[in-house]
Amino acid sequence: MNSQNITVISSKNRIPFRRYLSPSHLVKQIFRYRQLLGQSILWEINDRYRGSALGILWAGIIPLVRLAVFTLIFSMLLGGKKVVWGLDSDLEVGMMILCGFILFNIFAESIGKAPRLMWINKTYVKNIAFPIEIIPLIGIGVAVVHSMIGMGILIVLELFKSGSVSWTIIFLPLLYLPLVFFVAGISWIIAALGVFYRDVNNLIQSLIQVFFLLSAVIFPLKRFTEALSDQLEWVLRLNLLATIIENARRVFMEGHPPDWFWLNITFISSIGVMMLGYAVFMYYKREFADVI
């Protein structure tokens, strides 16, 4: 009689796991909610600095404080610049560490929040027909914007210090892609697990520290591979962050093009992690409201 859409609610129409694994499902869904996602990221950033006197300036002050700490402790106090880094200037060591830390922080911030994410956003899970799969992406978006501000500061510092920035910096945006894919995939899995198992939160908080060391944030990755045997390198590289951080230093600080071999592997695996994480989240999504 009339042509309006009919919504069918049934206990039977559970979409099989492998349908969610298809890349087209993921791409379609993100494309469909791109405006909501973009807008939510802007609102989130706006909300965070609303009411503070310095506002968004904090996004720049925080990395500068970190730079000072890293320079002071890891180079000037612990004296690691020659032995660990093979560099001559204290500031450069600080910048190397900050460069890795800025990228690691996207991971730490997003993953650290993931276990409680669905609980915090209870209303969206229970009361609104909201695409909750974009909630983890909002946090990642905010973290990426913050990290870009940090990178901008590093670029300005580099310009002051040596008068120019290596052309290889054009590869830096390319490194954000596998990082975001990887973090999104892990966040989706952890957010889904966190709904059912409250222990996940404690587990993740301690795992982040392990990842901090494994990702070679405060020392170069090659110190790791030298200390262990070369055959173990791929084990370290299973942690995709290690390759991404190492390459960020290559293209930004050292002026070399990326290590394409490992970067390609990281790129492909990050897409795999993202698709798997998305499928896990979407498959278990219908049970979230039962528990929360």
Partner: peptide, 25 residues
């Protein structure tokens, strides 16, 4: 919650024609 779509029924079905607006909280 089942009609809004946030909860799935254990059995049975429901049909809704058109757009749903919900004021839950």
């Amino acid at each position: 919650q089942i009609l809004v779509g946030t909860l799935k029924p254990s059995s049975g079905s429901a049909f809704i024609r058109g757009r749903v607006g919900a004021i839950m909280t």
